[in-house]
Design a protein around this nucleic acid. Structure first.
Lengths: 219, 219
DNA sequence: CAAAATTAATCAATCGTTTGATTAATTTTG
DNA sequence: CAAAATTAATCAAACGATTGATTAATTTTG
C-alpha cells in the first residue's frame, strides 16, 4: 500500500534509520523529535525505544551503520602500494567524492554534530573516525613530498582542510552551493551526471597545480 | 563582582547577544534553551522576551548585529577599482580571514543553521547575505579571467566552494582542525599569531598556483 | 510619582520515555 | 499433531520534565 511495505519484510530497523538520518540532517539532533521521526517512518513511537533504547541510541545506530563502509574503503586505498603518490591521490579523491555525495544526508548530520565546540563522547568518537580518514590522505601527501613527487613548500595540513572543506561546503550548504554551481546539488541525477565528475576533475586539477607545478610559488 | 559588571553600564543587550551567540554556536538553536542563555548571561529569563520578543528574536538580533560590518567591508573591496585582480583577491582573502576568525562563534552558528536542508525564512535570509559575499569574490575572479590575468580553464564556481569551505572546515570543526594543524584553533592567541597569517599565505599560494600558473593543467 | 526595568511565579505545549495491554509468531509440552 | 506456554512485536495512553512564553508584582530610574 505505502512505500514502506517493500522494506518491512527486509529490515524494519534499517528503514527507521534511513528515515531518521534524513530527519536529523534536515532539522538537527534536538530539532528532530522522536514523534516526527516515528511518524515519518510510519512506526509507533515506542518502537524507537524498543529497538534502539533511546533517541540517542537511534543517532548512534546511524553512525555504527555507516562506519563499516568507511573503514573498508580507507584500508583498500592505504594498502594500495603498487601505484605512485599522484595515482593514489587520484584514487582517494574519486572514492571520497563518490562516498560523500552518495551519503550526503549522513555527512550533513555528522558535520553538524562535530561542529559543536563542547566535547562529548559522541564528538570524541566522530573525531577518531574522521581522523583516520585524514591520516590516510596526509600519508599520501607526505610520501609524495619525500619521494620528490610533490613540491616541498606546500602546507599539507591546510590542504586537508581544503579537500574536506570544499566537499563539506557543497554538501552541507545546499541552498548556497546550488545557487553557485547552477543546479540543485541535492538532486540525485544531478549528483551522478554533473556534480561528481565535475568535482573530481576540479579537485585533481587544484591539487596538481598546488602540489606538482614547477613554478616558484614564493613570489 | 562578576565578569558581567563592566558591561552592564555600556549595553546589557549586547552582553546578552554575546552570550547567546556563544551558546547557540555550542549547542545549536534548538539545543540552547532560553534558561541556559539567560543563566549564562546572568539575567532573568523574562528579559530575553522583554528585549527581543522571543527566542527567535534573540537569534535574529545576533544576525542583524553582524550584518552591518559584513556589508561595509564587502563594498570597500568591491569598489576598490585602483588595483588589479590579483591585488583585489589578496585584499579579499586578508579581510575575510580576519573577519571570520574573529567572529568564529557567529560563523559556526550561521553555518549550522544554513546546513538545514529545509527552507525557512531564516535560511532564505542567510542565503541572501552569504551570496552577496560570494558574488564579490566571483566578480574578482571573472574580471581576472577576462583581463587575461588568470587562466581560462579554471572553475570559478567550485573555487568559491574551496575558499569558503577551507575556512569553514577550520572554524566549524575545531576538534579536528586543531588536531590536524597542531594547536588549539579556538585559542585567541593562536588565532592571531599563528592561524591567521598561516591561513592567509596558504590561501594566496593555493589561489596563485591554480589561477595564474603558466603550466598546462590539462595533462 | 510615573515610566522603565527586573523579578519570581506560572502558563500551556511539547519533549523523550515508560507503561500495561494486545496481537502475532514461535517453542514447548503431553 | 494439537494445546499450552513463551517470546517478540506493536500499540494507545500517560508519565514527569522541560520548553518558550506570559503574567503580575516589585524595584529602579529619571
Amino acid at each position: 500500500m505505502n512505500q514502506t511495505m517493500e522494506k518491512d519484510k527486509t529490515d524494519k530497523k534499517d528503514h527507521i534509520l534511513d528515515v531518521a538520518e534524513k530527519v536529523f540532517a534536515e532539522l538537527g539532533y534536538e530539532g528532530a523529535s522522536t514523534r516526527l521521526i516515528s511518524g515519518e517512518a510510519n512506526v509507533n513511537m515506542a518502537m524507537l525505544n524498543y529497538y534502539f533504547g533511546s533517541k540517542e541510541g537511534v543517532f548512534l545506530a546511524i553512525f555504527e551503520r555507516r562506519i563499516a563502509s568507511f573503514q573498508s574503503v580507507l584500508l583498500s586505498i592505504g594498502n594500495d602500494g603498487s601505484t605512485n603518490s599522484w595515482e593514489k591521490l587520484n584514487k582517494y579523491i574519486e572514492s571520497y567524492v563518490d562516498r560523500v555525495v552518495n551519503n550526503n544526508c549522513f555527512h550533513v548530520m555528522l558535520n553538524r554534530e562535530i561542529s559543536k565546540s563542547k566535547k562529548t563522547d559522541l564528538t570524541d568518537q566522530i573525531t577518531k573516525i574522521l581522523m583516520k580518514n585524514v591520516i590516510v590522505f596526509q600519508d599520501i601527501i607526505d610520501n609524495g613530498i619525500k619521494c620528490g613527487e610533490f613540491n616541498k613548500d606546500v602546507d599539507p595540513q591546510l590542504l586537508v582542510a581544503t579537500i574536506f572543506g570544499t566537499k563539506n561546503y557543497i554538501v552541507n550548504t545546499p541552498h548556497i552551493s546550488s545557487l553557485i554551481i547552477g543546479y540543485d546539488v541535492m538532486d540525485k541525477d544531478n549528483q551522478d551526471e554533473k556534480l561528481k565528475p565535475r568535482l573530481k576533475t576540479y579537485l585533481k586539477k587544484l591539487l596538481k597545480a598546488y602540489l606538482v607545478n614547477e613554478n616558484d610559488n614564493n613570489k
